[in-house]
């Protein structure tokens, strides 16, 4: 389904050029569930955004279902994001002034062509999808009244709204405690197994990585197949004690349930780190 070849990506901030990825090759088959691990700042999000059609400023090719993303116009790429991809982010990124059902139906606003639904159809479908993530009773709630795990499930429902074949999840459990995180991963596995949705999950959680069929590692600008020694060590460390997780994990993946339930616009810690 996904075919990345020779992908190079550098960020330019003024005169400063930060090379991030240099020569990434990656294949993801239809129906696969892949986890991506790697140190903070290694370019995992960058890769995910490019695959999801949020960023076209790279070299090399990314094909999804045989279609070269960079050859698409902005409108075509937007339609691709709308119909074929579901994004799930660490920060949930819900619109806090809209109810859960409105958040979930948001993709309907930007549908084109035959994918267009009436407002009623869209809200009906949003309710149905919220039911699938066990949130029937939160349809008209505002996201700010929900727990972190519930918010992430609303975000997942939004990603599922247009029945995508591909879901791209960027540290989806990063703001959740381990119990909630586990439930989310369970949900992903169900979507993968029951609905055949292809999932690419960026994670710092070695337990999540270990639970996927396949793990790739982004390091030094390249994608390496397999978790490698470091991951196994992390997994082992996590088995023994959650306190001995390495520096990155404790820095990025906050496991504190209190801070996970972020108010309004959560502080953008890793983004700030990335911009610094």
């Amino acid at each position: 389904m996904i075919r990345v070849r020779g992908m190079h990506k550098s960020y330019r901030t003024g005169k400063l050029v930060t090379p991030v990825l240099h020569g990434v090759d990656l294949d993801v088959a239809d129906g696969e569930m892949v986890s991506i691990v790697g140190p903070s700042g290694s370019g995992k999000s960058t890769l995910l955004h490019a695959i999801g059609g949020l960023d076209r400023d790279y070299e090399g090719t990314i094909e999804v279902d045989g279609r070269d993303l960079r050859a698409m116009s902005d409108v075509e790429l937007s339609a691709y994001r709308n119909r074929h991809v579901g994004f799930v982010f660490q920060a949930f990124n819900l619109l806090h002034h809209q109810t859960c059902v409105e958040n979930v139906a948001l993709p309907a606003l930007f549908a084109r062509g035959e994918g267009m639904l009436s407002r009623e159809q869209a809200l009906d479908r949003a309710r149905e999808v919220l039911g699938r993530v066990d949130l029937h009773d939160k349809v008209d709630a505002l996201p700010t009244t929900l727990s972190g795990g519930q918010r992430q499930r609303v975000a997942i429902a939004r990603a599922l709204f247009n029945r995508p074949r591909l879901m791209l999840c960027d540290e989806p459990t990063g703001n959740l405690d381990s119990v909630m995180g586990k439930a989310i991963i369970e949900l992903f596995r169900r979507l993968n197994e029951e609905d055949g949705i292809t999932l690419v999950v960026v994670t710092h959680d070695p337990k999540i990585a270990a639970s996927t069929q396949r793990t790739v590692r982004v390091q030094d600008g390249l994608v390496l197949e397999g978790a490698g020694d470091a991951l196994e060590a992390e997994a082992a460390a996590a088995e023994n004690s959650s306190n001995t997780a390495d520096a990155e994990a404790s820095a990025e993946g906050s496991a504190d349930p209190e801070s996970a339930d972020v108010p309004e616009d959560p502080a953008d810690a890793p983004a700030q780190e990335a911009l610094a």
Partner: peptide, 16 residues
């Protein structure tokens, strides 16, 4: 800007 980013992610084009 975050809201705009969300809309882009779910399918809004630059034109939208």
């Amino acid at each position: 800007q975050r809201e705009i980013g969300v809309m882009r992610a779910v399918g809004a084009s630059r034109g939208d």
